[in-house]
Write a protein that binds this DNA or RNA. Structure first.
Lengths: 218, 218
DNA sequence: TTTTGTTTTAAACAAATGTTTAAAATTTTA
DNA sequence: TAAAATTTTAAACATTTGTTTAAAACAAAA
């Protein structure tokens, strides 16, 4: 049956992937594109160029493999954010870094947000045990910082829970609607990235101008 | 075989739905929640309280039923927008009306955007023959209006294709992430709607302040 | 009423699904 | 080397899938 892989990642060169890694990587790309329900075990096996039985040999079930991948992708979505929150920089700088980091993640994994949101809606309870952790970190670091700026009068007074959707929403939505946009404007991958980058800069401009009260006015 | 329904909608009272309508409505709600791949013919039959064979009797196949529903929902998503574009009002008023109308649609069908974007990504080619029509209408009405305002100096110079994502993105994203938000903040449907409404007002404020150049400054 | 057409039903269909089996091939250990 | 353990394979498995069938129930027309 499924064995414990003791010496994973201990190779020096690590040019060739193990079968387990091949399957996981293939499954990730198929799940991202087709979602859990739209992906068959045979899709994964074919994408990984492996025998159909190996998926269950290594991961026990399609469900278990999915949950493992979901957690990885959810971390990819959140970890950047959490790291930036902890930096000793101004709130304005944090927000800009946040948008820039988010943009990089989405450039490499454009289907990420749509995938996560869809799967969270479709299930929700089985996933997200670590969601509360995220909430606490987010709130612990952000709320205090925001209230400080507001009380100093350097920032517009806005409900805390609106800040993140405001910052992340406009940018992430561009990638949620990526396929619609590409089809509507008949544009290539490269043209889309160009558009997205430009849009990101507009968002940074708009957000900072709106949220922070310029010192010149005072 | 499937018959032509001649006298549809000619009833005066129309208290009871026809079986065809019951199935379509049930299918709509199941598709919205679970997506095409996640929905089984038996899910639909059960939700409609009808025999499993009736779906194919009235709609030929799951696929055909889906495409019909998708078109309806895509229209729901676009028609508001197109109607507002054609109104003889200022651009600023248009954008505000756009956000307000969009908000109403999403309050009644919160899963709409996530559903559309997911299905467009998963297929794309079979759907959206009418997408070009949308593009032309959108561009025909909007581009001229924007360039006029920009040349008058009453509006910030921004690439046309960035305007709509900027306006719709932040608001729609709140509903794309509805389930994540509700789970994270452990909030009820009503509390979420309260939050969304508040967020909508912030967005209107931010967008108009950013896009339009205040006359007082001049 | 009988006849005709329509709607609904239970049952079955073939194909596709996730998963398991048991043997073969390969690698590791002794 | 031989033995033991691990990995890979082809084939089969029981369910679930979308769809069809053929008869029953119902309604409309004659």
């Amino acid at each position: 049956m499924a064995q414990v892989n003791e010496n994973r990642e201990e190779n020096v060169a690590c040019i060739t992937q193990s079968s387990e890694e091949k399957i996981k990587e293939a499954a990730k790309s198929v799940f991202l594109k087709k979602g859990y329900a739209g992906t068959t075990a045979r899709d994964i096996a074919e994408a990984a160029n492996m025998n159909i039985a190996l998926t269950n040999y290594y991961f026990r079930s399609k469900e278990k493999l999915f949950v493992e991948i979901f957690k990885d992708l959810f971390s990819l979505y959140c970890n950047n954010t959490l790291q930036i929150f902890e930096k000793p920089i101004s709130l304005r700088e944090k927000l800009i870094e946040l948008i820039e980091a988010d943009f990089q993640v989405m450039k490499t994994e454009p289907a990420l947000v749509l995938f996560l949101m869809t799967e969270i809606q479709r299930d929700g309870s089985r996933l997200l045990p670590e969601l509360n952790k995220l909430k606490e970190l987010l709130h612990g670091h952000l709320t205090a910082h925001i209230e400080e700026e507001v009380s100093k009068g350097t920032m517009r007074k806005i409900p805390t829970e609106s800040i993140m959707p405001l910052i992340m929403g406009s940018l992430q939505f561009v990638f949620v609607g990526k396929n619609l946009t590409m089809k509507m404007y008949n544009c290539s991958e490269e043209e889309f990235n160009q558009f997205a980058e430009n849009h990101k800069n507009i968002i940074i401009d708009m957000i900072t101008e709106y949220l922070f009260i310029s010192e010149e006015v005072m």
